[in-house]
Nucleic acid binder design. Structure first.
Length: 366
DNA sequence: AAGCCGTGGGG
DNA sequence: TCCCCAAGGCT
């Protein structure tokens, strides 16, 4: 472990730090839907939704989700498609499928009670080191570290930890620091306060150190090096992919949609048929061949796209060209995971944000 | 270990 | 416009 950090950890008056931090939290904590009580299920759902996602974004999704699936049992028995639909627009969709899978396990293996040991709760799908600690401390009052980006930022400054927080291995160092500092009598507030402090005061850029309740314990503030911490290497730029998308309507006025594979990007979500532009032929020809081979459909594809749209993911960018096509046959027996769906049905399935935008635009132009 | 996995907001 | 970010986990 980092020697300087170790020395700093011993210098901090831990009980004074705990008191200053927790009293600040009691006065300043935001009223959030998942803070109404300590129901482990409600805490659990909130922690999954909050992974890599802002509080303001999560709130409306969380409220809707809890209305639809208020208990472990209701979520366990819900069809996956309903759960994905409730998650539409929130991103990282495997979170939703893992959550339901884990909830079903709790329902079946633990009699519907969320387990309260690190070993058991960490074995649940989608529950990693952070989420395990968060649920154990917030719902059960168990003094376990819950180290997220906020905690690493706050403690890197308070203790002068120079390890690169973008590396997975760094988390352990911060967990050790939390194990030393955590308030055994109130781990829930201690952990939440560290995160709340990171969100409200100890922000990534321009932290409000003068307002900080623990600034007298903070090494970075004492030395005026808040802006140097935490150390975080930036990730690589995203790659571009050219995507050709096609809107096809049958004689009944239904639209052709396809369900994505059950693994990988946007798993199990529905979308309008699309392929990567191979640039080995005119776009309309590529799409025509694609509809024939992948869907068994004869169609005439417009030469020019009626819409363009870029969509940026965390690790790649789709540059989308959207075409329309007219069926040239009555035979519409579809292959694979494709289906004809009515306008009403398309409203009720989960689409990626990019395809939902295309759909809205299509309805507008019709 | 490092790449994959979404989205919308802010500087 | 572009980049970074926001209560991470999985493989």
């Amino acid at each position: 472990m980092n020697k300087n950090f170790d020395q700093q950890l011993l210098k901090v008056n831990k009980y004074s730090f705990q008191k200053d931090l927790i009293e600040w939290f009691e006065n300043e904590m935001r009223e959030l839907p998942w803070r109404q009580n300590q129901d482990p299920y409600r805490v659990w759902v909130s922690e999954i939704m909050l992974q890599q996602t802002r509080v303001d974004t999560v709130i409306p999704f969380y409220n809707r989700f809890m209305e639809l699936f208020p208990t472990i049992e209701t979520l366990a028995y819900a069809p996956e498609e309903k759960v994905l639909k409730a998650w539409e627009g929130l991103g990282y969709y495997s979170r939703a499928r893992n959550l339901q899978s884990a909830v079903r396990e709790v329902h079946e293996q633990y009699g519907g009670t969320v387990p309260n040991t690190p070993k058991e709760i960490s074995s649940l799908k989608g529950v990693g080191p952070y989420t395990a600690g968060a649920i154990l401390s917030i719902a059960y009052g168990i003094p376990e570290p819950a180290v997220d980006g906020n905690v690493m930022r706050v403690l890197s400054r308070v203790l002068g930890i120079w390890d690169d927080i973008s590396k997975a291995s760094s988390r352990k160092i911060f967990e050790e620091a939390v194990r030393h500092l955590i308030a055994e009598h109130n781990p829930s507030y201690f952990n939440q306060a560290l995160m709340e402090l990171g969100a409200l005061i100890c922000s990534p850029t321009s932290p409000s150190c003068l307002l900080c309740p623990v600034n007298e314990h903070c090494l970075a503030f004492a030395e005026g090096i808040q802006s140097e911490l935490p150390v975080k290497t930036r990730k690589k730029s995203t790659k571009m992919i050219d995507i050709l998308t096609v809107i096809v309507q049958n004689q009944e006025g239904e639209w052709l949609v396809n369900q994505r594979p059950s693994h990988g990007l946007l798993a199990n979500l529905w979308e309008f048929p699309n392929l990567e532009d191979q640039q080995n032929a005119p776009t309309s020809v590529q799409i025509q061949e694609f509809l024939k081979v992948d869907f068994g459909l004869e169609a005439i594809v417009q030469k020019e796209p009626w819409m363009k749209q870029d969509h940026v993911f965390s690790h790649l960018t789709w540059k989308m060209l959207v075409f329309t096509a007219d069926l040239n046959t009555q035979e519409t027996n579809l292959y694979q995971r494709a289906a004809w769906k009515t306008e009403q049905e398309i409203e009720e399935i989960a689409l990626p944000v990019s395809h939902r935008k295309i759909w809205r635009q299509h309805l507008l132009n019709k």
